[in-house]
Write a protein that binds this DNA or RNA. Structure first.
Length: 553
RNA sequence: GCGCCCGUAGCUCAGCUGGAUAGAGCAACGGACUUCUAAUCCGUAGGUCGCACGUUCGAAUCGUGCCGGGCGCACCA
């Protein structure tokens, strides 16, 4: 909206003042904090002052005269110093409402792909155990951020990197194998640093039932361990996918680390770095000069025993992403990985990408509270609370809402008691209730007035002249810009407050005004039209978040 | 020791590209249901913006130094 208005202003001014094109980029259009100062204000007059050799106030006066004839504005005035304040006309706002109704889910949405293709990688949990709360938070943030970017016109590729090549997987195999053997020989040695969780036993049991003969007939233990590793990995990956699906999180690409090695991609990346002069040998190992781009020290990419470090795979992985031609890529990591960022960034910089091509968001810790106490372990399994347990306990929508609600940079306290409350204490219900209430009004309209707002209808929107009605329309028209801003700043949590604010306005409206009035059908239609627009925007917001638009509560 | 994140009302958090009386929700207190769902609405009260110094006409916001909490500093992944 803002961009459209800005373009309108620039177009108009260019007709009179050609010099405008010189300063076009620097023209700002801000929403003043004080509503009395109008809907927008601009600094054009300051920018033109020098070129036109006149005072900002003089220019502002002239400019405001030129613009005051436009339909978009009801008033254009010059404020102190030379700021020009605009007041949008009622006609403009009515147009926005019609746009919401007409475009439905596409209101404010920028055509997908018009801004280029980006990649968002998130969760990427090791397939060696169930998802925990931190993964859940990353999943929700990644999902909401993806949808936000999609709304803003980007083509999104959502990616999960499967760490299926290193020691962790080997450990998984050893653990599963040991549990498998223990079924018949309880004293069979279990590796010290193996995975102790109960779920390993479940996998072993399943293997015992289905693949017992096959495993026991294998020639070497290594083969058996590898078989177990593979089986366990697939088993756990399926569970991970299930868990993610339960909160509506999906991926377009499941990228295997193993794939990198099997297809020589690690060697490709290494020879690429070599050509760029990024590598050298020392103490029998191969090092990357990550210090060139600001890392603390250079890093080993190939150990003296000839094997690659994890870093090597990761470089190859990002080299692969680089070759796929994204505008930029976003990685969402747990905060405990922040120390890893400088070295990866250095490696990526050596590909020749722009400074912030690789953006990394760090997700801070999640702490779970119940009855005022921090809960660390699950009573059921004796392990850390899993995402699955949380979803089972409080439901998908609450999980999404709470995980998405805070800035990823801050620690999150998740209070189960609040999430479980089906009352005013729980903001999830608050926003869903707004949607449900509108649906309810529509049902009543059909019942009492034999009028179905679900069908297309017209209304005289000039009847919407109450302050609350105007403020709702104004808020709705600002929402697309707020969403663009949230995406640009990588702050998906903003959508939560945007949604909440809209719900607040609606509930206030609901309480203060009667919508269905058989004696004043014209007004009734106008108000139902507004309600339909509110509901339309709520649905867009819910869709981005992945929260259900509940029709009855 | 070095680095990253956080420290705002009793609790959970917004605000942080500097700007006028620091905002919400919950909890507390007081009101509003013969009404389209009260899972709602209206109001009251509650704050040395961790501390100190500095930059500035002006700092919760920028800088420096402390303090407190979390995390990280491998030829691990």
């Amino acid at each position: 909206m803002k961009q459209k208005i800005k373009q309108q202003i620039i177009q108009k001014l260019k007709q009179y003042i050609p010099e405008v094109s010189q300063i076009e980029d620097r023209i700002s259009l801000e929403i003043p904090k004080d509503e009395k100062l109008g809907d927008f204000s601009t600094n054009v007059a300051f920018l033109l002052a020098r070129t036109l050799k006149s005072s900002p106030v003089e220019i502002a006066k002239k400019v405001s005269e030129m613009l005051s004839g436009m339909d978009t504005f009801s008033k254009v005035e010059v404020a102190g110093g030379g700021f020009i304040n605009f007041f949008l006309s009622d006609g403009y706002y009515r147009g926005v409402l019609q746009e919401v109704i007409r475009e439905k889910d596409d209101f404010g949405r920028i055509k997908e792909g018009s801004k280029g293709k980006i990649n968002i990688e998130y969760v990427s949990a090791n397939p060696t155990g169930p998802l925990h709360l931190g993964h859940g938070r990353g999943a929700v943030i990644g999902k909401v951020l993806s949808e936000l970017y999609r709304y803003c016109g980007y083509k999104i590729e959502r990616e999960f990197y499967i760490n299926d090549a290193g020691n962790q997987i080997k450990k998984l195999g050893q653990s599963v194998y040991a549990r498998f053997r223990q079924i018949e020989e309880p004293d069979y040695h279990f590796p010290e640093d193996g995975y102790h969780g109960e779920y390993i036993k479940d996998i072993a049991k399943e293997l015992f039932l289905t693949e017992k003969e096959k495993i026991l007939s294998m020639l070497s233990e290594d083969d058996a361990v590898e078989f177990c590793a593979n089986y366990g990995k697939n088993y756990l990956l399926d569970r991970i996918k299930e868990d993610l699906r339960s909160i509506g999180v999906e991926f377009d690409i499941w990228f295997s680390e193993k794939h990198l090695y099997e297809h020589g991609k690690v060697d490709d990346a290494i020879s690429f770095l070599k050509d760029r002069g990024m590598l050298y040998e020392k103490d029998g190992a191969l090092w990357v000069r990550t210090t060139i781009y600001g890392d603390d020290k250079d890093r080993v990419i190939k150990k003296s025993d000839g094997s690659y470090t994890y870093f090597a795979g990761d470089i190859a992985y990002h080299y692969d992403k680089y070759k796929r031609g994204y505008e930029f890529v976003i990685n969402i990591w747990g905060a405990d990985h922040h120390g890893y960022f400088p070295r990866l960034k250095s490696a990526v910089m050596s590909f020749g990408v722009p400074e912030n091509w690789l953006k990394v968001m760090f997700i801070q810790l999640v702490k779970l509270f119940k009855e005022g106490q921090e809960v660390k372990m699950s009573k059921r399994s004796g392990e850390f609370i899993t995402l699955r347990e949380l979803v089972e306990e409080v439901g998908k929508d609450a999980v999404i809402y709470f995980f998405a609600s805070k800035d990823s940079d801050t620690h999150l306290n998740f209070d189960i008691d609040v999430a479980l409350q089906k009352s005013n204490e729980n903001p999830v219900f608050y926003v869903q209730y707004a949607h449900a209430r509108i649906c309810s009004v529509f049902r009543e309209a059909l019942e009492r007035l034999s009028f179905n707002p679900e069908e297309n209808f017209q209304a005289d929107l000039s009847l919407l002249n109450q302050d609350i009605e105007k403020s709702i329309v104004k808020y709705i028209s600002a929402i697309p810009d707020m969403l663009y801003d949230a995406a640009e700043k990588n702050q998906p949590n903003k959508i939560i407050s945007i949604t909440y604010e809209l719900a607040v306005r609606f509930h206030r409206y609901y309480y203060g005004y009667k919508f269905l009035d058989p004696d004043n059908l014209e007004l009734t239609y106008a108000r139902l039209y507004l309600l339909k627009a509110i509901r339309g925007v709520l649905r867009i917001l819910f869709k981005i978040m992945g929260i259900a638009p509940v029709e009855r509560m």
